[in-house]
Design a protein around this nucleic acid. Structure first.
Lengths: 236, 236
DNA sequence: CGACCATTTGATATGGATCAAGCGATGTGG
DNA sequence: CCACATCGCTTGATCCATATCAAATGGTCG
């Protein structure tokens, strides 16, 4: 079984039919022009396919590579000693993950859906950054974006369940789509672990939002934002 | 009254007697050697004194300066529309704050105690970073440290009150002192707003930790870590 | 001494966790 | 093609940690 959660470290899978190829990804949100780092990764990087729930790297492993999602979706996470899991972030096509300031990764990374990931040696990036200020600057901006996201999440985590879920929906919508249709790649459990809630609370909150006509739920993973103003009011 | 909370935007106060001078601060944890950015700030920066509870910069103001605490303590924070306040971080002598990736600050900053702060133009720093890779690298590392702290806080915020308070104490101890004596510059309300708890819960949790012999509370701001192992176990 | 502010302590309320069961889609084997 | 197991999600009932409301205590400064 390709999709069982116990599969780990088997990076080179045959590409499942459902995964979109690089070409289509490049035509979409993955751009290379005007971005020296992106360009370099596309020139020098290798594409690896990961089936759903496969580990891409593990906590405490040496952080030797930098990754960029081409298709699918990736989650980073940390498992606490008592078994709770905190999700560090979700990474969508075009986004870079695996940035680290230590020698080792502080989180693990897994494919949420069958995914293609571009991989490049960190040492190669660092060497390039040393010569090309544009690349150094881009790395700096990527780190800044991570920082901003972490700070935004701190703000989310002090709020009520409704505010967290509403904030999550708006964040995802802002990252994936111009219109109001949202196709979530992650499970309710993933969302719960991202927001520091239980799966039941996430589910209940979504139905509550549906009752208050703020969203529609045609299917559990397909969410339509009906009333952004109401959602924004919740996040405030 | 210098210390009332309503005082804002009055940056240049005469230095209160209680504030330590630069000399003593430099002799302490503020080092300049081997740190090009720090050295530059000391050479080119101006020292400003801020009385307790005075604003250093405000949310949405242009982020034209970079700051370094010389003495005292600074908090950054955000006030939400419903009046709740989230503290972004505490900055102790030797630490840099005001880093921003937008043109404007995303948080406000205030002195917690009477403080001296070294100020330097961001444009000057950026110009230097463009020429001196060592300075660019130092900026990068500072951002990385901020990122790490934000991520650590995300981990704290999904935990119980005991775990958050224990984590906070260990973090502060790690930053301020080699031994087990901790002199907190911030109020219970500051801690509460940092940890996403109420002041009552922080107070109760500290007394509970005292009862379980994990800490001692000679005075409300002076905390002795009696049993680090127990605290670490809580944080897990 | 007396006013003020920070902190602690007590009593009660509540939002979200936990425990438990039901539901609907998807896929598998007979 | 249907019966059935599985998995992800929803819904219901109850419990508990923390918030909230209220009051007492203690330390500091005029």
């Amino acid at each position: 079984m390709l999709t069982q959660t116990t599969i780990r470290h088997n990076a080179f899978h045959p590409v499942p039919k459902s995964a979109r190829g690089i070409a289509s990804a490049s035509a979409g949100s993955v751009k290379t022009a005007d971005e020296p780092l992106a360009q370099t990764m596309h020139l020098m990087g290798a594409v690896m396919s990961h089936a759903r729930n496969c580990e891409i790297f593990g906590e405490n492993e040496p952080a030797d590579y930098l990754y960029k999602v081409m298709s699918g979706c990736v989650r980073t996470y940390k498992t606490l000693s008592d078994g709770r899991r905190q999700i560090g972030g979700f990474y969508l096509p075009g986004e870079v993950f695996g940035l680290s300031f230590d020698d080792d990764h502080t989180m693990s990374a897994e494919a949420i859906a069958d995914s293609k990931v571009l991989v490049i040696k960190r040492s190669a990036v660092n060497a390039l950054a040393g010569r090309d200020p544009a690349i150094a600057r881009e790395l700096f901006m990527l780190t800044g974006r991570e920082l901003r996201r972490a700070q935004d999440r701190v703000l989310l985590l002090i709020k009520s369940a409704q505010e967290r879920v509403a904030g999550f929906l708006l964040e995802m919508a802002g990252r994936t789509t111009a219109d109001n249709d949202l196709e979530l790649p992650m499970s309710r459990q993933d969302i719960a672990d991202y927001l520091g809630l239980t799966i039941e609370t996430v589910s209940r909150t979504l139905t509550a939002l549906e009752c208050s006509a703020a969203i529609e739920l045609p299917t559990s993973r397909h969410i339509v934002l009906r009333n952004r103003a109401a959602l924004n009011r919740l996040v405030s």
